[in-house]
Amino acid sequence: MVKSSPIYPFRKPPEPGVPQQIADGVYWLRMPLPFRLDHINLWLLEESDGWTIVDTGLATEDTTELWLKLSSIVSAKKPVKRLIATHMHPDHIGLAAWLCRHSGAEFWMSRSEYMHCRILLADSNREAPEEAISFYRAAGFNDEQLRYYRAKFGSFGSMVRGMPASYHRLQHGDSFIIGGRRWQLVMGEGHSPEHACLHCPELDLFIAGDQLLPTISSNVSVWPMEPAGNPLQAWIDSCHGLKALLPEKTLVLPSHGLPFTGAQPRLQALIDGHERDLDRVVQHCDEPKRVIDLFPLLFKAPIGNSMLVLATGESYAHLHYLMARGKIAMQTDNTGVNWYQRA
Rank of each mutant, 00 (worst) to 15 (best):
C117E: 06
N334A: 15
H102E: 14
L66G: 02
S48T: 12
Y8I: 13
K77T: 03
N334I: 06
S166V: 00
E314S: 06
M187C: 13
Q331K: 13
G273I: 05
K3L: 14
I178V: 15
N142F: 07
W183G: 12
P193I: 05
T64R: 10
L267T: 06
F295A: 12
A269Q: 09
M225Y: 03
D174F: 02
V26G: 08
G17C: 03
R150G: 02
V74I: 15
D204V: 00
P288C: 01
G17N: 13
F141M: 04
L203T: 08
D204R: 10
K77R: 10
K249C: 01
R126V: 03
A139T: 04
P129I: 02
F156S: 07
I40D: 03
L170G: 00
L203W: 03
Q145G: 09
N142L: 10
E127W: 02
V160L: 11
P231N: 13
T60K: 04
S218K: 04
R111Q: 11
R290E: 07
K300I: 04
A165G: 14
A139R: 08
D123C: 09
P9V: 00
A343F: 04
Y167A: 05
R111L: 11
V252R: 04
L203H: 03
L278T: 08
L308C: 13
H89K: 09
P265R: 01
V74A: 11
R266H: 08
